[in-house]
Computed example of a mutant assay.
Amino acid sequence: MRDLPNDPETGHQLSDPDPVKRAQIQMRRQLPKRFYTEASVAETPEGFAVQLDAKPVRTPGRALLALPTAAAAQLIADEFEAQRETIDPTTMPVLRLVNTAIDGVATDTQAVLEDIMRFSSSDMLFYRADTPEALVTRQADAWDPVIDWARSTLGARFFLAEGIVHVDQPRDAIAAVGIWLKQRDDACRLSAIHLMTTLTGSALLALAIDAGALDPDEAWTAAHIDEDWNIEQWGDDAEAIHRRVLRRRDFDAAVALIRALPG
């Protein structure tokens, strides 16, 4: 049995939380050569396993890389197939996400659930600009429907505020988020929701995507209203653009994994 080399980019702890810096760290390392001809998916008692030349792949923690659906496993097989002469983990966001889910999140799903709940207590969508009017309107148009969805679907009523001064949210609203997450607490789904939460700054956006109530493109745009406004006023920055591209790649990987998991 041949395993993928144990690379920190695919382990529990990311080499750096910033995707640009992770990529730079990875580029300084010598990438392992591609040692397999074909990546495939095979059904096993543990689920649908990713295989390289018919041999199972294991996570850095030595667990079998197996997922609950063939579609989810195929996402990773496709990432392996896309590798050329070398294996570059920075171009395999679903693999990194699933490795984290299996080796880390699965051992303590409650901790990840609680972290998402903490995000929801100070969600970006609660804090609104008071001026200029055009920005106020953009935020309201994009964010109010998500707040309304949380109230109608989760039963969570949140307070809104102008500015950045922290506003305590009702405990029953946070508890409602926890109840929703408890119903969807498999490790891969929680990992994907948590990643989307950290990338967008909003647990509510992530939950709405997971529920199929919000289009991922709309959510990504909603998460960057303030940033896009500033770009319009002051211009963009090449490094910031590159960072956003990498963050979007990770975001899309989380969305793809959620869509491939059982509903």
Rank of each mutant, 00 (worst) to 15 (best):
G263K: 12
L113N: 01
R2P: 14
G201T: 06
P132R: 02
A111M: 12
L257T: 01
H12Q: 05
F35R: 05
R58E: 13
L67M: 15
G201A: 03
R157G: 08
L181N: 00
S202E: 00
D250E: 13
E227K: 11
K182Q: 10
A176D: 04
R244F: 09
D78T: 13
I179S: 04
V57I: 15
M124I: 08
P45V: 06
A156Y: 01
A256V: 13
A111C: 11
R29Y: 01
T91R: 08
D250F: 02
R58F: 12
T109C: 12
G104V: 08
A173P: 03
V136Q: 05
A254W: 10
F119A: 02
P89T: 04
S120F: 00
E38Y: 09
K182D: 08
D186N: 14
M92Y: 03
R157M: 10
P5A: 14
W180R: 03
L95D: 02
N99Y: 10
D250C: 07
V136N: 02
N99S: 14
W149M: 00
A260I: 10
Q13P: 01
A175D: 10
A42V: 15
A101G: 13
S40Y: 02
E114S: 11
Q13V: 13
D252H: 02
G235P: 03
P60H: 02
H166K: 11
G212C: 07
V245M: 15
L97E: 03
I231F: 09
A175Y: 03
A77F: 01
V167M: 09
A206H: 02
I179W: 05
Q233F: 01
P93E: 05
A206L: 08
A176G: 04
L207W: 01
P89D: 00
A23K: 05
D7R: 13
E79M: 00
P262E: 04
H242P: 01
R84M: 10
A54Y: 07
